[in-house]
Design a protein around this nucleic acid. Structure first.
Lengths: 213, 213, 213, 213
DNA sequence: GATGAATGAGGTTTCATTCAT
DNA sequence: AATGAATGAAACCTCATTCAT
C-alpha cells in the first residue's frame, strides 16, 4: 500500500510501513491472536497467509514464530481461548440455583448470546477444525465433548426429576441443540433484524418445548 | 535421471501407474467428481491438490482442465449435485398427501437420513463454502434459501391450521433444525450405535414436540 | 546482476535475465545436473541455493521441481551418475587380460586419473554424503561397497596366486587405497605441477610395492 | 498462550527444562565445544542450529555469543583443538630415539589410533572445512601443511639414509597416507571387529612395505 | 556475565494453471 | 479429446545474530 515493495516477500521489513490494524499497546501475542481471529473468520485459515497476519498485527514474522511454533499453533491458540471462555460461561449458569428447567433455559439462551457476540470465533471453530493436526483435533474434540456433557447432565437431571420427557436420549437433544448453535455463524448477521438475545430466547423456548413431557 | 522422475509421486506422468481408486468405466467427469468429493471430505478443499484429484481419478491434469475450468469449478459442481439431490427429495415429501404434521415429520426425518447417507457431501458443504468465489457462494446460498423456504412453508401451513404453535417464528425453527442437520457431518459416524434413521426419528420427534401448541 | 530486482525472490521470472552459464541446447535435466555439480563442488551443497542452481542452469524453479523431487533428489542424481561411471571404468580394467599385478596396477592408476578428471564429483562425493536422506546414504554406500569389493577381488586373486603378500587383509588394503583416492579432492589442483597420470602412477606404484611379498 | 510457548521445542527458553546432555560442571565454553563437536559430527555443521547446540550444552544463546563470536567461530575452535592435539602427538613420536623406520612406523600407527579415538573430530575435519571463512580455511590448511611436513621430513630422512626407496616423492607418500587416515571417519566403526590399534598396525605395515627399496 | 525477545533475510517447496503438440 | 512440461507467484518456516535489560 503506497509502496510497490510491500508485496515483495522477504524484502526489507516484515512489518508493513502502513499502520497495522491491531492496538499497538497490547502484547505481541495478543495482537497476533486478535489479528488471526479476525482474518481467519473473514477469509478462512488457508486463505490467510502468515504475512497478512503479521502485517495486520504489526509485528514481524520472526516475532510470530517466537511466540507460536507454526500457523497451526496460532489457530490452536484461538481454539483454546474460545473453548475456555465457553466452558467458563456454562459453568456459571449450570451451577446457579433454581429449578432445572429455568437453569437450562438460561444456559441455552446464554450460549446463543455468547456465540453471537463472538461470531468470528464460531465461524473459525466450525470451518477450520480440520486444519489442525489430528492430535490437536482430538484435543479440541475432547474439550468440546466435556462441554457437551456438562449440558447433558442438566437435561438428565430434568429427566430424572420428571420435568423433561425421557423418550428422547439426552445426547441427541444436546447434539441437536449445539448443531443449531454452531450453525449460527453461517447465517446470523449482527446487522439483521433479530438480536442475539432474541434468537437465544427463541432457541431456548423451542428446546424447552421439545422437552416437555 | 535426465527424465522426469517417474518414480516420484506426482512427478512426470500425472496418471499413477498403480491403479487409481475410481471406477475406470465411469465417465471422466464423473470419476473426477467422485474423487474430488471423497478427497475434499477427507482432507478439505485446500489440502487437496489438483494433482491428487487427477491421480485418484486416474486421469491427467489436462483432461481435468478440459472438463472443469478450475479447481473452484469442480467444487461448485459438487455443490450443485448435492443441492439438486436435496431439493428433489424434499419436493417428494412436501408434496405428499396427509396431515401437515405427518408430512413435516417425514420430511424432517428423511433429510437426516439423506444427510447421513451422503455424509461426505455434507462435510464439504459446511466446510468449503467460503472457498467458492463470492458469486458462486451467493448462488449456493440462494438455492439453499429456497430449500429452506420450502421447509418453512410446511411449518407455516401447520401454524395457520393451528396444529403448530405460533409464538416461535417459522424461520427460527427452520434454521435451528437445519443447523442441527448440517452439523451431523461433524459428529455422526456411520459405524456408531445409532442408525441414520434412528437419529432422524429422534430429531423429527423433537422438532414436532417443540412445535406442539 | 545489472538489475536490482534479481535478488528479490518470487518476483517476476525465475530465470535470470543475464545469461545462464549452462549450454542452452542440452536437456533441462542435464543442464540442472551440471549446474548443480559445479556449484555443489564450488561452495558445498548447503551453501548452494536452489535459486542459484536454476539461475545457472537457465531454467525456472518450477521446471527443476518438475524433474527432481527436491534439492536432495538432485544431489542424489549427481551421486548416481558418478557411481555408475566409476563402476563402468573399473569393470573395464578388471576384466582385462594379463597378469593380475598388471591389471591391478592399471586399474589403480586409472581410478586416480578418472578421479582427477572429475574432481568436482569427488569433492561433492566426500563432502555431501551426509546431506542425503539416511536411506539414500545407504544406497550410495551399498553401491560404493560393491565397487570396493570388485577391487578387493583383484587383490585376493593376487594373494591366492602368491604374487601379493598375505599378511595384510585385502580389505585394509582397499580402504587404505580408496581413502587416498577420495582424498584427492582435498588437495589436488589441476594447475599444480603433477598431472593426474603422474599421481596415478605413483599411487599405483606405492600400492604394488606395499603388496610385494 | 500469550507467552512464548515454553512447551514448544526451542521456543521460549533456550535452556531445555529436561536436562541437557553435557556435564554441568564443566565450563560453559567447554560444554559448548563438546556439544558442538558431537552435533557437528552427527549431522554436519549446517544441519546443526545454534539453538540445538546451546540446548545440548545447557546454556542460553546469549551465553554462547558471549564466548564465541559466531557459529563459524565455534567450528574454528573445534578445528584448533584437534590440530593442536595432533601436532603434539606427532612431535612426541618424531622426536623419539631409534632407527627412522621404527619411528615412522610408530608415528604412522599412532596417528591412526588417535584418529580412531577421536573419530568425531575427524569427521568434522573432513566435512566442514569449506564452511569456515576463506581466511580460516587457509589458517587450518597452513597448520595442516606443517603437520604433513613434519611427517614428510621423517620419510626424507629415511630416503637420504637409504632405508626407504627414492623413486616415489615423499610428498606423494604423505598425502596418500593421510588421505587414508582422514578417510577413516567415513568407514571405521568403533564397534566393528578391528581395533584402532590393529588398523594402525596394518596401515603402518603397508606404508613401510611400500617404502622398502 | 547472561538473558531471551525480536529481527530480517533467505530458504525450500507447492501449486493452480497454461499451452504447444 | 488429451497430454505433460513449464510457469511464476506465493506459501510457510528457519536461523544466525543483535540488543535492551
Amino acid at each position: 500500500m503506497g509502496n510497490p515493495r510491500d508485496e515483495c516477500p522477504g524484502r526489507g521489513q516484515d512489518r508493513s510501513a502502513s499502520g497495522p490494524r491491531e492496538d499497538n499497546t497490547a502484547s505481541v501475542s495478543d495482537r497476533l491472536m486478535s489479528a488471526a481471529t479476525r482474518l481467519f473468520a473473514e477469509r478462512g485459515y488457508e486463505r490467510t497467509s502468515v504475512r497478512e497476519i503479521v502485517q495486520a498485527a504489526g509485528v514481524t514474522k520472526g516475532a510470530m514464530y517466537h511466540y507460536f511454533a507454526s500457523k497451526d499453533d496460532l489457530l490452536f491458540a484461538v481454539y483454546e481461548r474460545v473453548l475456555a471462555m465457553q466452558m467458563r460461561r456454562l459453568e456459571e449458569f449450570a451451577s446457579d440455583e433454581g429449578p432445572i428447567a429455568e437453569r437450562l433455559r438460561e444456559a441455552a439462551a446464554d450460549v446463543v448470546r455468547t456465540t453471537v457476540e463472538n461470531l468470528e470465533d464460531t465461524v473459525i471453530f466450525q470451518r477450520s477444525l480440520h486444519m489442525l493436526s489430528p492430535e490437536r483435533q482430538n484435543e479440541v474434540r475432547k474439550e468440546r465433548r466435556s462441554y457437551h456433557e456438562r449440558f447433558r447432565e442438566m437435561i438428565e437431571e430434568g429427566q430424572h426429576s420428571g420435568v423433561f420427557r425421557t423418550d428422547i436420549p439426552a445426547d441427541i437433544v444436546v447434539t441437536q441443540y449445539f448443531g443449531a448453535v454452531h450453525h449460527l455463524g453461517m447465517w446470523y448477521r449482527p446487522d439483521g433484524e433479530l438480536s442475539g438475545a432474541a434468537v437465544g430466547d427463541h432457541f431456548a423456548h423451542l428446546l424447552l418445548n421439545g422437552l416437555r413431557p
